[in-house]
């Protein structure tokens, strides 16, 4: 079985030139943890996900490496302060936050077992792109695989 047969062919995505605020709203409204990022031609460039939101909320110093700050209980925080941080970042372009997954994007022709391997290694949802044009053609989530196996 090929990934193209079980993937979601109408994925919600955001464009590079949209703002952090718009992308954040899409995450909240759809309940997704991950959004593929495309340019005006639909070419896939990477992902915008919850880690980008956490990155805005957390101090930079807390995300340096495993030996940096593991405990932030001493920093006073309130929902209002966090909302202020999100408001400060809301005008930034998604381009600034887009991250490329370590794994190469999947192609619709790839076998499902390859998709399962990537899901096991890289997370719950993966972008599927046309091998020639690199345009986003779908996403493969753990739910898609489980539904196919039901």
């Amino acid at each position: 079985m090929k990934i193209g047969e079980i993937m979601n062919r109408a994925p919600v995505s955001v464009r590079m030139d949209q703002t952090f605020g718009e992308a954040f709203r899409v995450l909240v409204e759809t309940g997704h943890k991950f959004l593929p990022v495309v340019d005006a031609e639909g070419v896939y460039h990477g992902n915008f996900d919850l880690k980008d939101v956490w990155g805005v909320l957390l101090p930079k110093a807390a995300r340096l490496d495993r030996k940096s700050i593991e405990n932030l209980a001493f920093v006073p925080s309130s929902l209002e302060k966090m909302k202020d941080k999100l408001a400060d970042a809301s005008g930034d372009l998604v381009e600034k936050y887009v991250t490329r997954s370590d794994a190469p994007p999947l192609a619709p022709e790839s076998p499902v077992i390859q998709g399962i391997l990537m899901l096991d290694e890289c997370g719950e949802t993966l972008a599927v792109v046309d091998a020639n044009t690199h345009k986003l053609v779908g996403i493969l989530s753990a739910t898609d695989v489980l539904n196919a196996l039901r």
């Binding site: 101090p59 930079k60 110093a61 700050i69």
Partner: peptide, 10 residues
Amino acid sequence: VPVTLLITEE
């Protein structure tokens, strides 16, 4: 240094 970066950020 991480605490320093945290303080200077604030």
